[in-house]
C-alpha cells in the first residue's frame, strides 16, 4: 500500500496577486514530503472550500496580502462548517496586524504566519498540528 501522505491545499483568496510567499511555502511543504494542491490566484472562499472538500485535504493554507483577511478567513470557516468539513484545518499567512491575528485565532483559524516567518517553521507546524490530527482522527477507513 502507498503511504498516506499529508495533503495540503495552498490557496490565494481575494484579488491580490502576490504569490511569492504562497509559492515558496508550497515548495517547502513539497520538499518535506507533502502533497500540495495549488489553486492559483484570485479564488473566492466558495472555490477554496469546494476544492478542499473534493481534494479531501488535511489542511488549507491561505495567503492574503490584500487586507481582506477579516472578511475572507471567517467566511471560509463558515463554509467549512456548512460542508461538515470543520476537521479540515485552516491556517494562513499574510500582512495581518496583531489584534486581527488574535481575533482570527479566536474564531478558529489554527495558526497565522506573518512576514519574516521561516518556511521551516511552517513545515514544522504543519507536521505537528496537521499530521497529528490526521493520524489520530482520519475518517477514512484504514
Amino acid at each position: 500500500m502507498s503511504e498516506p501522505r499529508l495533503r495540503i491545499l495552498m490557496a490565494k483568496a481575494g484579488l491580490d496577486g502576490h504569490d511569492r510567499g504562497v509559492k515558496v511555502v508550497a515548495r517547502a511543504l513539497r520538499d518535506a514530503g507533502m502533497e500540495v494542491i495549488y489553486t492559483g490566484l484570485h479564488q473566492t472562499p466558495e472555490q477554496v472550500v469546494r476544492a478542499a472538500v473534493d481534494e479531501d485535504v488535511d489542511a488549507i493554507g491561505l495567503s492574503i496580502l490584500s487586507g481582506a483577511h477579516m472578511t475572507i478567513f471567517p467566511r471560509i470557516l463558515e463554509l467549512l462548517r456548512e460542508q461538515e468539513a470543520e476537521d479540515i484545518i485552516l491556517f494562513g499567512g499574510g500582512t495581518i496586524p496583531e489584534d486581527d491575528l488574535q481575533e482570527l485565532k479566536r474564531m478558529g483559524v489554527a495558526e497565522l504566519f506573518t512576514p519574516g516567518a521561516y518556511t521551516q517553521e511552517i513545515v514544522e507546524w504543519v507536521r505537528e498540528n496537521v499530521g497529528e490530527k490526521a493520524a489520530g482522527g482520519s475518517a477514512a477507513p484504514s
Partner: peptide, 9 residues
C-alpha cells in the same frame, strides 16, 4: 517525497 499538483488551477 512530495508533490505540487497544480493542474486544477
Amino acid at each position: 517525497g512530495g508533490a505540487v499538483l497544480g493542474d486544477r488551477v
